[in-house]
Every structure is written in structure tokens, then in C-alpha cells.
Simulated assay, not measured.
Amino acid sequence: MSKNRQLKQAKVQEIKEKMEKAEAVVLADYQGLTVEEDTQLRKNFREAGVEYKIYKNTLVALAAKELGIEGLEQYLKGPVSIAMSYDDATAPARILNDFAKDHKKLELKAGLVQGTVYDETKIKEVASIPPKEVLIAKLLGSLKAPMSNFVYLLNAIKEKNESAESAE
């Protein structure tokens, strides 16, 4: 086996392992971004714990095929960058979508979220979902509200009874 083929197989294996672990994989067309813009985008990804790579489309297509992922190869045309998150399924889409609002050269293409392939429209919907921490805070807030109201009610009853006893 040639050295080149071994290198390609190793790269396909690397991509496959990363895609398997990732909660979300988002594809974007990055052509036309300046070096400064690309540096800023990479910084945004690093801060969010998202891995951002550029692989050959054929190698990504092979890795997807080996994983049994269908429908992703149609988006692997032209220059494609890949953002992968292992914790937050919405982070890559959210960061790319926010960045694309100010940088028209960047275009979301598609994505893979928890094993399901989504087109550009669906990925933009995923991007609108708040981060996990915000969702947890909202959930805790909604759980806390009824309990707080119940405590206020009990306290009001107690104060009413105390004021009725002191009036007697």
C-alpha cells in the first residue's frame, strides 16, 4: 500500500472518530473570508470549545459513508469548513450563523446534529436555540417559580394568622 493511501486512510479514520463523538457537525462555505475574519471566527470557536477544521471533501464523504450517514455528501462541494462540537449541539450552528450575519461571504451549508442531517434552513433553526446553560437556567427558573409562590402563600397565611391572634 502506498504511503499516500495510508495517510488518507488515517485521515478518514480521524474524521470518522471526530464525527462519531460530535454532538453536532456543521458545514460552511468559507471562501472569501479575509485572514483577519477567519482568525476571529476561529477565536469564537475556541472560546466555545468547538473544533473548526478544513478537510478534503472526499475524505469527509468517505468517513460519513463508513458511519452510515446518508445525505451529507451532497453538501460537500467546493470549499467547505467543518465545525464540530462535542458538548453543545447548537454551538457550531449558532456561532457560524451569528458570524455570517456580519460577514456575507460565510454561508452555512448543512449539518449533522445527533446523527440527523439537516439542510441550511434547519441548521439556521438549530442556531436559534439558546446555549445549554441558558436552557438549564430557564428550566430551573420555571421550576423555582411555583415553589416560591407557594412559600409566599404560606408566609402570607402565617402573617394573617399572627395578626389575627395579636388583634384578639
Score class of each variant (00 low, 15 high):
residue 107 E to G: 00
residue 140 L to I: 10
residue 141 G to N: 14
residue 144 K to G: 08
residue 88 D to H: 08
residue 81 S to A: 15
residue 155 N to M: 11
residue 76 L to D: 06
residue 124 K to H: 04
residue 143 L to S: 02
residue 107 E to N: 14
residue 95 I to S: 05
residue 101 K to Y: 06
residue 136 I to Y: 14
residue 108 L to I: 15
residue 115 G to S: 12
residue 128 S to Q: 15
residue 102 D to I: 03
residue 139 L to P: 02
residue 138 K to H: 12
residue 103 H to V: 08
residue 68 G to K: 02
residue 134 V to I: 14
residue 82 I to Y: 03
residue 147 M to D: 00
residue 110 A to S: 13
residue 121 T to R: 12
residue 101 K to H: 11
residue 92 P to F: 02
residue 67 L to Q: 09
residue 125 E to D: 14
residue 132 K to E: 06
residue 85 S to R: 07
residue 78 G to R: 06
residue 125 E to L: 12
residue 93 A to W: 04
residue 149 N to M: 10
residue 113 V to A: 04
residue 81 S to V: 10
residue 113 V to N: 05
residue 99 F to G: 09
residue 106 L to N: 04
residue 109 K to L: 15
residue 68 G to R: 02
residue 110 A to I: 09
residue 139 L to C: 03
residue 89 A to D: 11
residue 148 S to K: 10
residue 98 D to G: 10
residue 153 L to W: 00
residue 108 L to D: 05
residue 145 A to G: 13
residue 128 S to A: 15
residue 148 S to H: 03
residue 72 L to M: 11
residue 92 P to I: 02
residue 121 T to G: 05
residue 112 L to W: 04
residue 87 D to H: 10
residue 109 K to F: 04
residue 67 L to K: 08
residue 88 D to I: 10
residue 144 K to R: 14
residue 89 A to F: 14
residue 128 S to W: 00
residue 106 L to C: 08
residue 92 P to H: 03
residue 84 M to S: 10
residue 104 K to V: 13
residue 85 S to P: 03
residue 148 S to M: 08
residue 152 Y to F: 12
residue 81 S to H: 01
residue 125 E to F: 05
residue 121 T to S: 12
residue 89 A to G: 09
residue 156 A to D: 13
residue 75 Y to P: 02
residue 152 Y to I: 07
residue 78 G to M: 05
residue 79 P to L: 12
residue 83 A to W: 08
residue 148 S to F: 04
residue 152 Y to D: 07
residue 124 K to Q: 15
residue 122 K to W: 00
residue 155 N to R: 13
residue 122 K to G: 00
residue 68 G to M: 05
residue 152 Y to K: 14
residue 153 L to M: 14
residue 152 Y to T: 02
residue 92 P to T: 03
residue 107 E to D: 08
residue 88 D to K: 11
residue 75 Y to F: 15
residue 71 G to R: 08
residue 123 I to T: 04
residue 94 R to E: 09
residue 94 R to Q: 07
residue 126 V to S: 07
residue 84 M to V: 01
residue 115 G to F: 11
residue 87 D to W: 00
residue 150 F to D: 00
residue 124 K to D: 01
residue 114 Q to L: 12
residue 73 E to S: 15
residue 131 P to L: 07
residue 81 S to E: 03
residue 130 P to L: 12
residue 152 Y to E: 01
residue 136 I to M: 14
residue 91 A to C: 12
residue 77 K to H: 11
residue 138 K to A: 09
residue 86 Y to F: 14
residue 156 A to S: 13
residue 75 Y to T: 04
residue 76 L to H: 03
residue 117 V to Q: 10
residue 132 K to Y: 02
residue 157 I to D: 01
residue 72 L to G: 08
residue 127 A to H: 09
residue 137 A to D: 10
residue 72 L to E: 05
residue 86 Y to C: 02
residue 151 V to L: 14
residue 134 V to Y: 06
residue 93 A to V: 08
residue 157 I to M: 12
residue 108 L to V: 13
residue 120 E to N: 07
residue 112 L to N: 05
residue 141 G to A: 12
residue 128 S to E: 15
residue 104 K to F: 06
residue 133 E to T: 11
residue 150 F to K: 05
residue 123 I to D: 03
residue 140 L to V: 12
residue 151 V to E: 04
